[in-house]
Amino acid sequence: MGDNEIVELFLRRDEAAIERTAEKYGGRLRSLAYGIVTDRQTAEECENDAYLEAWDSIPPHEPRSYLYAFLARIVRHIGLDRCRERTRLKRSAYIVELSRELQECIPAPDDTVRLIDDMALAEAINGFLGGLSAEKRGVFIRRYFHLDSIAEISHRFGISESKVKSMLFRCRNKLRERLEKEGCEI
C-alpha cells in the first residue's frame, strides 16, 4: 500500500492505518529505535508509542510524501526521551557523548541572545547538509540522526574509523560556521 493510502486511512480514523504502517515500516522503525536504546523490548515499546503518536498527529499533519521520515522523527524523539529517563539502559552515556560533540557546533552556548526558531534552524541545517557530498551527508546523518556508532558508520560506508572521525570533525566545524554565518545565536 502506498504512503498516500496509509495517510488516508489515518485521516479517516481507520485503525487499519496502524496495521498497514507496521507492515510497511515496522522493521525499519524498530531497527532505528534499537539503534538508539539498544534494548529490544524498549525498541518495541518505542515503535508502538510512535504509532500512537502518529495516530494523534495525523491529522492535522498529512505526511503523504514523507511518511517514513515523519515516523522516524517520532521514534527517534521517543527513543531519546527513553534513554534520558531510564539510566538502566546504560545508553545515556552515549547520548551525552553525542551531545558533547554537537555542543562544538553551537556558536555561543553561554550567550543566549535570542532563541532561533525551528524553521530558521531547519533551513540552516538542511542548507549545510545540501553543501556536503552525498557520502559526508550520509555519515553526518547516520551519526546524529540515527545515532550510529563510529564503528557502524565505518562498516556501512567502507571507510576507516579515523576517516569517519575526521569527516565528522570537519562537518561539525562547517555546521558551526554555517550557524555563525546565518547569525544563529542559539
Binding site: 521520515a69 555542543q103 557546533c105 531547519a122
Partner: peptide
Amino acid sequence: MNGNELLDKMELIAPAYIE
C-alpha cells in the same frame, strides 16, 4: 541551546536526506 537540544533538533533534517 546546548548540545543535547541540538541533538534533538536534528529531527529537522529534511525527509529526503533521512530517506
